[in-house]
Design a protein around this nucleic acid. Structure first.
Length: 429
RNA sequence: GGAUGGGUGGCCGAGUGGUCGAAGGCAGCGGUCUUGAAAACCGCCGACUCGCAAGGGUCCGUGGGUUCGAAUCCCACCCCAUCCGCCA
């Protein structure tokens, strides 16, 4: 949620910052609505002040045994009047909140301006020399490799649950588990994150806090008989852990990591990435979340992204880092770096991690604050999140990058201990 | 699912329908004392919001209701704890 004070104080700035996002946001009618709300608020409060004064006076007179019938008469008139005005105010307030809840965050001033993903800016590649190493045979897609090896079963997934669900078997299932453990061990052991296992279902308030609701309900799976949604990312439960709290300055930065399964309806993605593991309704992800002081969040995004990149480096998977342009930013983000892994089977880079600084946008929605040592007023914290990494897509990247001419898969060195010593996945294994 | 007890400020915890935004304690901040610290003592100390300010308003799980007036009474709902039942 944007700071209403900022919208009021700098309407042109807010309008122009929103204009470089995708979608259009006209704040003119909002300003009128909001001004009217404040006007009514003033009137309501004046009447409330009078009511409170009268009530107090009644108390005083009763105690003294005096008559208060003139005050009762006044209240008889004031009461209904106040009630009507309060109802009007409430309605206006809800409208204002509704508009506010639907406004996305303002892109950072250092974010490249662009309409869509073609405006994104490549920052660096790893390894940093030219194109990724070419295989000396024709690379296969991961779905061919996986099916041939019997470790990815798309038909079985479709039978059990439908399209965009997959069954992993044998070494495939093991590889997924190995990746989760490898990533968690790295982030907790070397990067200083605390491991968390959150609920995979969340209530409406929680999804509002991170910005999925009310605007993006169609992207979520919902429970049938309970007001609960399956989480689309661990960012949702992890970030909300600090909601409705006033932390101390020493608590910050708070760094959390979690492996969770994630669920997305992919409502707007019909026909996109229909084959393979790239776009699934259900996938596993290791998430990184930081809660910081406002002055620290810029640097925190660099570190968080570096932590995610380290996973790719240890797995020796070629990738590039991209700064998203204004038109490609997510709803809550001020600034986002995407990490894109090289997929030889498809001859392109694909997103494998997205790291964002939302600054105080989510904190304001969920009332996540902290108090500086010695300070009187609490302040909003800044929240950041990033994938470190998407497990399914990492598995894809390993299949495609580590494939051999005979269709077998070499296990990246860093993963061998997590694979029980197995060094290759081949048809026989 | 059934029964019971609860949801009050950063935390713990009192609270009689009427100067209650709310006792007390802890934590925090400032001070006295001390070579310094601790202890002791004194003072300050909720959040949000409207307003240039003076000041006003809202908030005691949520939403309704009763009343001139509700943290206190009534209704509904949510959540938590414990016991019973069921169950990974």
């Amino acid at each position: 949620m944007l700071d209403i004070k900022l919208i009021r104080a700098e309407p042109e700035l807010v309008q122009s910052r929103l204009a470089i996002r995708s979608g259009s946001y006209d704040l003119n009618s909002f300003h009128d609505l909001e001004a009217k709300k404040r006007k009514i608020q003033g009137e309501v409060e004046a009447l409330q002040a009078r009511r409170n004064g009268v009530s107090k006076e009644v108390g005083v007179r009763k105690k003294a045994g005096e008559d208060a019938s003139d005050l009762f008469a006044e209240m008889k008139e004031l009461g209904p009047q106040l009630k009507d005005l309060e109802a009007e105010f409430k309605e206006l307030e809800q409208k204002v909140d509704g508009v506010l809840a639907g406004l996305p965050n303002l892109p950072g001033t250092d974010v490249p301006v662009g309409a869509d993903e073609s405006g994104n800016v490549e920052l660096r590649r790893w390894p940093d020399v030219g194109e990724p190493e070419k295989l000396d045979f024709i690379a296969k897609n991961h779905w061919e490799l996986g099916e041939d090896l019997g470790i990815l079963d798309f038909d079985a997934g479709a039978k059990i649950a439908g399209a965009r669900f997959t069954v992993l078997r044998g070494a495939g299932a093991r590889l997924s588990r190995a990746l989760i453990n490898f990533m968690l061990d790295l982030h907790t052991g070397e990067h200083g994150y605390t491991e968390v296992m959150p609920p995979l279902l969340a209530n409406q308030k929680t999804l509002y806090g991170t910005g999925q609701l009310p605007k993006f309900e169609e992207d979520l799976f919902a429970a049938k008989d309970d007001p609960l949604y399956m989480i689309p990312t661990a960012e949702v439960p992890l970030t909300n852990l600090v909601g409705d709290q006033i932390l101390t300055e020493e608590d910050l930065p708070l760094k959390m990591t979690a492996w969770t399964t994630c669920f997305r309806r992919e409502a707007g993605a019909a026909g996109k990435d229909t084959r393979g593991l790239i776009r699934q309704h259900q996938f596993d992800k290791v998430e990184l979340v930081w809660i910081t002081r406002p002055e620290d969040s810029g640097e925190a995004l660099e570190q968080l992204t570096a932590n995610a990149e380290e996973v790719l480096k240890r797995l020796k998977l070629p990738y590039r880092a991209v700064a998203l342009c204004s038109g490609d930013l997510g709803f809550a983000a001020v600034k986002t770096y995407d990490l894109e892994v090289w997929l030889p089977g498809q001859g392109c880079y694909r997103e494998i991690s997205s790291c964002s600084n939302t600054e105080s946008f989510q904190a304001r929605r969920m009332k996540a604050r902290f108090r500086r040592a010695g300070a009187k007023k609490p302040e909003m914290v800044h929240t950041l999140n990033g994938s470190g990494l998407a497990v399914g897509r990492t598995l894809v990247a390993i299949l495609e990058n580590y494939q051999q001419a005979d269709g077998s898969i070499k296990i990246p060195e860093a993963l061998i201990p997590y694979m029980g010593g197995i060094t290759t996945i081949s048809k026989a294994s």
